[in-house]
Design a protein around this nucleic acid. Structure first.
Length: 292
DNA sequence: TGCCAGGAAAAGA
DNA sequence: TCTTTTCCTGGC
């Protein structure tokens, strides 16, 4: 466990002596789209129908707009606080090349996000840039999500499948997601018609999960890896996007190796910790804008 | 203005 | 099976 204890107050909690947790690392390693930094260096995010604000004060993590019960049922798992990242980093650092990335992104943690939201979010992510993905998800939430007020400002939860399955292709085309609109439309229909499909996929082992996710339109190997890693705790996933490709070329493989081969190489090398390794590599490559 | 980045799908080899 | 082309948007 990566924290010592938690203290509840009126409308916030203080998580004491948190290890391996840096806000910038967690929220800017490419895994989430609904967290934004405030002027004061805190982060405000929307998840599980709630708005929370987080701050790091020395070794303590302060989570605003919540209480101790909610922390235990939602945020403790959401922030993956039950996991010992020191052990993971120690194992991955045995690889001298990877150690550089691990040291650089030492406060990365993998969030446990919601299945449906992640499925749609990463379909939108294909051939897309992070600011545009964030804008599109914000638009969809503003149109069809629930209003949530926090500190006098209005936020919107990500809409449910019950809400989204009634929307037309045209509705989605008006969300600035381009050719992905038909994928989103098709996927919403499929999820609605197959009750519990995401929970069933969640229960599969890593390889079957990867295959089943790709049966959704707009989901290929990379997007499937992201969904299983960021919402289904399948840690042998190794999403290879342009940044990870650059990082792998920088550290390990030849320039002309295909994405598929890079994925296989990464999974062979890092095994059950592939997903963690991928996050350190992605963050290192992107923040340092590495060239090949 | 045109060109580029960014992955999956579909067509082609 | 692997490789190439197309899709859409915003920024340079």
């Amino acid at each position: 466990m990566d924290f010592k204890q938690v203290e509840g107050f009126n409308d916030y909690v203080v998580v004491k002596k948190v290890k391996n947790f840096e806000l910038d690392h967690v929220f800017e390693c490419g895994q989430c789209f609904r967290w934004n930094k405030t002027e004061t260096g805190k982060f405000i995010g929307i998840a599980y129908g709630k708005v929370i604000e987080v701050e790091k004060n020395g070794e303590d993590l302060i989570i605003y707009n919540t209480n101790i019960e909610e922390f235990k049922t939602i945020w403790q798992e959401y922030f993956d606080l039950n996991r010992d990242y020191t052990e993971i980093k120690k194992e991955l650092s045995k690889d001298a090349l990877l150690k550089k990335s691990v040291d650089f992104g030492k406060g990365i943690r993998l969030l446990k996000q919601e299945h449906f939201e992640l499925l749609l979010s990463f379909i939108i992510s294909s051939n897309n840039r992070i600011p545009m993905i964030k804008r599109a998800i914000a638009t969809i939430s503003e149109k069809w999500g629930e209003k949530i007020e926090y500190k006098g400002k209005i936020y919107y939860s990500f809409p449910t499948i019950e809400e989204l399955h009634t929307k037309t292709l045209e509705d989605f085309e008006n969300c600035s997601i381009g050719f992905r609109a038909k994928y989103i439309f098709n996927t919403c229909q499929k999820v609605y018609e197959n009750t519990g499909i995401l929970e069933q996929i969640f229960k599969l082992d890593d390889n079957e999960c990867h295959i089943e996710l790709q049966k959704f339109m707009g989901v290929g190997p990379k997007v499937a890896d992201c969904i299983m890693l960021f919402s289904m705790q399948k840690y042998s996933a190794f999403p290879v996007d342009v940044w990870v490709k650059r990082a792998m070329m920088h550290f390990y493989v030849a320039p002309d190796v295909s994405l598929k081969k890079i994925r296989e190489f990464g999974r062979d090398k890092f095994g059950e910790l592939s997903g963690f390794a991928q996050q350190y590599l992605f963050y290192y490559a992107r923040e340092n804008n590495i060239e090949v």
